[in-house]
Amino acid sequence: MTVKQLSVFVENRPGRLSTITRLLGDNGVNIRAMSIADTKDFGILRLIVDDSEKAQKVLKGENFAVTITNVMAIKILDQPGGLADAMDCLYKDNISVEYMYAAFINATDGTAYLILRVDKTDDAVTALTEGGFKLVSDEELKSL
C-alpha cells in the first residue's frame, strides 16, 4: 500500500517555493507533508497532498518539472524507539531507505506518520505489514 508523492524540480532562486505553495493553495490543494532535498543550484521539493493528480496538473501548467513517485506512509508510535522499530523491520529484510521525512503527529492518539522511500517498495510493504505497522492509503490520507 503506497501513497503518491509529488517531486518538483526547483531552481534555487528567490520566490520559487512561495510560487509553488501559493499556486497549490489557490487551487485548493492541501499539503499534508513536505521535505526539500537541495544542492547549491537546485532542489527537489517533495510533497504529499490531498489531491496529487490535481496538484500535478496545476504545477505542469506552470511549466514545473513534476514527477509522481509511490512512497509509503506509515504510522508509528510517537514515543522513544518508535522509529527505530520500523527501521529494524526494514533492515532485517535488507531494504535500504533512500529518504524519509516526518508527516504529521497526531497528539490525541500519540501516533506519528512517516513518509518513506525505499529501494524495494513491495518488499517493504510486506515487511512492515507483517511487523505490525499500519500503512496509510491515499484515501485514508485525505481524511486524516
Binding site: Q5, S7, F9, A37, D38, T39, F42, G43, I44, R46, A65, V66, T67, T69, E98, Y99, R117
Partner: peptide, 15 residues
C-alpha cells in the same frame, strides 16, 4: 532544461 524524460525524485539522479 530539465524535462519530463529525465525527472526524478532524488537529487542524486540529477547530480
Amino acid at each position: 532544461e530539465v524535462d519530463d524524460s529525465m525527472f526524478s525524485d532524488t537529487v542524486k539522479t540529477y547530480e
